[in-house]
Design a protein around this nucleic acid. Structure first.
Lengths: 291, 291
DNA sequence: CTCAGCCTATCGTTTTTTCAGATTGCTTTT
DNA sequence: AAAAGCAATCTGAAAAAACGATAGGCTGAG
């Protein structure tokens, strides 16, 4: 029951073939066969059913596979935890909603980077769903997403409170006025936008249909489109404050039940909480007074 | 980061010396040194501080140790889960309070043993505290203990409901009468008796002091002592029913708040639930109608 | 102070395990 | 029928692990 055997096993199970696994593991097929055979002998039951196109997991193999993954994760965590002497260092990749990254996370970076220069900080934007999956996949150590999440294997803590507002062209007295005939043109940052669910709720409450969602990659482009009367958008008030003050667009407040969203930070429950992440969270909470 | 390396590491950490670890692992000391050295090289930090009387864990070693244990447990669980094809077999060691074992568990054994002849069933008696520790130590797969337990890493389910009663010599009209001058002589099965906490509560509520607890290894001896007027005892009603009906002793009921105790079955939350244990629980719950 | 006892580190040798390459046999596809 | 893809097996080479002996350091008893 060696860790390398389990790694080989996992690769064979994932690729569905010993040749493919050998190629991925940079070794030869005979070696893979031998490792699997050793495992099968040790466990006393076949793990794969051999057929002409490769191999398929047996029931016993299916039972072993999750353990193989967990062992690999646990070993990786053990290395990280052992090396982590309490001073934040090394890579720290976290996720954030695009607007959260721009509005909340970016301003905190300078201070964090100065305080902990040995940390290689990276932020990956994405939607709540993407980010949750990335955290579960161990691609990200943690993420700022739209809460509540309530996932069993994730710890979440409320970090920010955002007030969403409708952003429209100047001179429009209300949301309804911006939607001629109950039809709204929506401008968003990305197709699977951060606040998509909330946006659809807001529009559905008013009986407004959405024929088309226009996607622009940058906030500046969105502001330009809204100012030009191309459509409306839904963004955190703090984010669009400067643009509104510049007199380019008009804001339309929403009732609190629709406007308020909480941004939570999620990370895996069972995993090692790295010093870099712990320090980051302390940094965020220390500087989060102005939410 | 091999599993054998982790096992060697754990042994050295536990025994506090490479020689002792080598003896326990049936190998030579140089080998242990080499394994530890390999681990330290791989992790990039020393795991032990060497001194003349042996070795002591460094901070990094302290961080690694729990992971080494978890990996070992996970691997053992992986083997068991992989080999477990759904038909109960192999060893099944569970714990139970002495009275629960006698009263509830024993009657269920015959049927279980007949239905699943491949299971090697064993029951270990003990107090609630001992049994909880044994389950946490992985000495027992599960145990019947006095609930509620409410431990984070244990799953508990209510199995039986017991009514405790005072057992005293014949002709004593009340509990108070059995305790001359507020002093009771108590007869128990074992020093750290199953219902000790409850017993102390019952006596404290009545202002009865306990000068001495007499310990007898068998139920029959307890019945004899109580019948002879040596003291009183607190036992499940169902257990002492036959003796009482034989007219040897007198029963004194307690108010429900004092009398009723729940017996829960506990097992580890994260561990593999073996088919043998699963079948046993189903068997118990199917036959538990007469609680 | 000295020496015995206990401990770890190191080195050379032996044993075991693992790896790599070639071959065989089977099945499916062309 | 030939070709391609796949797993099983065998063999020699390489690597790793285990072993045994020795050296060196520290402690405590005499």
């Amino acid at each position: 029951m060696d860790t390398t055997d389990l790694k080989v096993f996992e690769t064979v199970a994932r690729t569905g073939g010993m040749n493919r696994a050998a190629a991925e593991l940079h070794t030869v097929q005979s070696n893979v066969t031998a490792r699997i055979r050793a495992l099968e002998t040790e466990l006393g039951c076949p793990l794969f059913a051999r057929h002409s196109r490769g191999v398929a997991l047996t029931a016993a193999g299916e039972r072993l596979l999750p353990y193989a993954r967990r062992v690999a994760w646990l070993l990786a965590d053990a290395v990280r935890a052992t090396r982590d002497d309490g001073t934040p260092r090394g890579p720290l990749t976290i996720g954030a909603l695009e607007t959260t990254a721009a509005l909340r996370v970016s301003p905190l970076f300078a201070g964090y980077a100065t305080a902990f220069p040995e940390v290689d900080l990276a932020v990956r934007p994405g939607t709540t769903e993407e980010l949750i999956n990335a955290v579960l996949n161990r691609t990200l150590e943690g993420a700022f997403v739209c809460g509540p999440v309530a996932h069993q294997s994730l710890i979440e803590q409320v970090m920010f409170q955002e007030e969403l507002t409708i952003l429209a062209a100047l001179g429009l007295p209300s949301i309804e006025a911006a939607t001629q005939g109950g039809i709204a043109r929506i401008v968003v940052l990305r197709a699977g936008c951060s606040y998509r669910q909330r946006r659809e709720m807001v529009l559905a409450n008013r009986g407004i249909a959405v024929p088309r969602v226009m996607e622009f990659g940058t906030l500046e482009a969105i502001f330009g489109c809204v100012a030009a009367g191309l459509g409306i958008t839904l963004l955190p008030r703090a984010l669009i404050g400067p643009v509104w003050r510049a007199g380019r667009v008009s804001l339309h407040a929403l009732p609190p039940s629709e406007a308020m969203v909480t941004t939570v930070f999620i990370h895996r429950r069972e995993a090692h909480l790295s010093s870099a992440l712990r320090a980051f969270l302390e940094h965020v909470q220390a500087g989060a007074g102005y939410s």
